[in-house]
């Protein structure tokens, strides 16, 4: 019998990380950005039936890039986590921090223990009654949990997007402005134009009632971009 090959742990982790990064960088990016009444989530999604953005709970939204089946499992898992917690305790006890931690644990576990790591990155956003209560969390393919301040990008070209947004982001901007800024940044990185109908966008809006998640349609995106 031949002895199994010895693979040093550094090499194992590096191989897995390279594999996951390669998968994610092929995917189209999503930008998450604060505006005066909440948070905008926007990305290119031609077809649009397989959603990348979703409502998790009253004030919590989800965005995922990479393999659809993998982040969809996480989206559904997040809804289950949130509804179970809200039903057992109270609606205010469901927080993005708890959810981001659960995602981080789950993704981290999969990264080291499963045959194939998830080729995904997810974003969790939460708003409160004023801007100081906004929480943005980014969870990477290996479970690394990073907080973002004001804006963030995941998916292909996220580094370039991050630099562009760092220059252009201003606190207290209107929804129209952030839609334009985010869409222009994605077009600049992708080096092509995107039709209004090929965007998928949603907001968490603190002026809405209990459920603050709302999808933003192509007309609204078109109007916002031509206005500013």
């Amino acid at each position: 019998m031949t002895a199994p090959f010895y693979v040093p742990p550094e090499q194992l982790i590096k191989d897995r990380a390279d594999f996951a990064r390669k998968g994610i960088s092929r995917g189209r990016p999503i930008i998450v950005m604060e505006y005066i009444d909440g948070v905008l989530l926007i990305g290119e999604n031609p077809g649009g039936y397989l959603h990348k953005l979703g409502e998790i709970y009253d004030s919590i939204a989800f965005a995922g890039v990479g393999r659809f089946n993998e982040f969809e499992t996480l989206r559904v898992g997040g809804i289950r986590y949130a509804d179970l917690k809200g039903y057992s305790y109270g609606r205010r006890d469901v927080t993005a921090k708890g959810l981001a931690n659960a995602y981080s644990q789950t993704i981290g576990q999969i990264f080291t223990h499963e045959v194939k790591p998830y080729e995904i990155e997810v974003f969790v956003a939460e708003i409160g009654d004023d801007a100081s209560a906004t929480r943005l969390f980014r969870i990477q393919f290996d479970g690394t949990l990073i907080t973002a301040d004001g804006f963030g990008a995941i998916g292909g070209g996220e580094e370039a997007l991050g630099e562009t947004l760092a220059d252009q982001y201003e606190a207290g901007a209107t929804l129209d402005t952030v839609i334009s800024t985010a869409a222009d940044a994605i077009e600049a990185v992708e080096e092509r134009q995107v039709d209004d109908g090929d965007w998928e966008a949603a907001v968490l809006d603190r002026t809405l009632g209990r459920r603050r998640f709302r999808q933003v349609g192509p007309e609204e995106i078109g109007a916002a971009r031509s206005a500013s």
Binding site: G77, R80, S88, A102
Partner: peptide, 23 residues
């Protein structure tokens, strides 16, 4: 109460879209 923090994934049987089945 312990089950609230149970793992996100890998429920058996799979509860589908029903909250009652999840419970």
């Amino acid at each position: 109460a312990g089950a609230i923090g149970a793992p996100l994934l890998n429920d058996e049987p799979v509860p589908g879209a029903s909250f009652l089945s999840l419970l």
